[in-house]
Computed example of a mutant assay.
Amino acid sequence: MSLENQNGSLQTSFTGTVATVEFGHPASNSFPRNLLNRLTAEINLLSRNETISVIILQSQGAKVFCSGASFDELLEVENEEQGTEFFSGFAHLLNAMRNCSKIIIGRVQGKAVGGGVGIIAACDYVFATTESAVKLSELAIGIGPFVIEPAVSRKIGKMAMTEMTLAAHGWKSAEWALEHGLYSEIHPATELEAAVENFAKKLSAYNPDALCEMKKIIWENTEHWESLLFERAAITGKLILSDFSKTALLQFKK
């Protein structure tokens, strides 16, 4: 396996004023810290790019959008500092998406777990397929969805987030995610690409200054996330060191 494959891949393409960012990793599009950092940096770079007004965020493959944090790297965490640093990667990414001056469209072509659900929740408008089920499995490995909780709760509400979190082994269907506001639209897999492209084309034709101001309104009252998400990362970083978590991670990996 090449070093690029081990670290995951990240590519950005441009069509008019639309930037499409695609991430991928051979382990079910999971996120090692390096890939999280690269995606965060790319979102920040595009936020400052005055030639674009819309970002499409998507992943490689057909069945899995994102499986969350890299289990291999979680097993390598040896102390609280390392744990906090790892989960801060998701905090940085969610804040970058929240602060981005561009509207972010999520293209979800498959299932999402844990941090992947958080990334979906941080998008401004989300297209998914009818097969794009979601799950918050963190309790099953001895932690919790602490960093992504504010983003998920903001989209689907505290009670629905609680339902997902406590039913840690259960999938929620795409229809459930649509009903609760995580998804904006769902389409058959064969129609997803066209639906996303058509919407992005229409959106990018609007006044970019109006889109930028709308983005600010969409994310009103989330300024405290600049500290909150890192406080949550510290909680998770401590819990991942427990014997329960180490044993559960090994079982999941097998």
Rank of each mutant, 00 (worst) to 15 (best):
V21P: 04
D209V: 12
G170M: 12
V77F: 04
L39S: 13
L136N: 04
N99T: 12
G8Y: 00
I120P: 00
L139W: 04
G181W: 00
K238Y: 05
N221R: 15
V18R: 02
E80C: 10
A91Q: 01
R33F: 11
L10G: 05
I217H: 15
W171E: 06
Q82Y: 00
T20D: 10
P188I: 08
L139A: 09
S70V: 06
G106P: 08
V108G: 06
F230E: 06
E191K: 15
A41P: 07
G115K: 02
S13C: 07
L241R: 07
E179L: 00
V54Y: 08
Q6N: 10
I103V: 14
E78V: 15
G170V: 06
G61T: 07
N29R: 01
A167W: 00
L239Y: 10
P208M: 03
I120A: 00
V108S: 04
Q60Y: 01
L211W: 08
K111P: 09
T165D: 07
L182E: 02
A140M: 11
K246F: 05
L192E: 09
F90Q: 08
S204P: 03
E185G: 02
L35S: 13
L192C: 07
T222F: 08
Y183A: 03
R232S: 14
E179Q: 03
A210W: 10
I186P: 07
N79W: 09
W225Q: 05
V196H: 08
V117A: 03
A174D: 05
S245Y: 04
A205F: 06
N198T: 12
P208D: 11
E149M: 06
A62Y: 13
N37K: 15
T130W: 02
S70P: 05
N198P: 00
A160M: 06
P32D: 03
H92D: 15
A128T: 06
L203F: 01
T51S: 15
K158A: 13
C100Q: 14
I240N: 08
I120G: 00
P188W: 04
L228H: 11
H180V: 07
A96D: 11
H187R: 15
E131Q: 15
S132D: 07
A195H: 05
H25N: 13
G116F: 00
M97Y: 07
G106M: 03
V126S: 08
T247Y: 06
E226T: 14
T15H: 02
L241S: 13
A233G: 09
F199N: 02
C212V: 11
L249Q: 14
F31R: 04
G68V: 10
E193T: 09
K135A: 07
G157A: 04
V117Y: 01
N37Q: 15
E193I: 04
G181Y: 01
E22V: 15
T222H: 10
Q60S: 14
R107F: 06
E73D: 11
A69Q: 05
T165I: 09
R98E: 14
E80I: 12
S88T: 10
K216M: 10
A189D: 14
V108I: 12
Q6G: 04
I105K: 06
E193H: 12
A160Y: 06
G110N: 01
G237H: 02
H25P: 09
A62W: 11
M97S: 09
P150K: 03
A133T: 11
F244Q: 13
A151S: 14
E220M: 11
K102G: 13
E197M: 09
A121I: 01
E4V: 11
I240F: 03
L10A: 10
L192M: 05
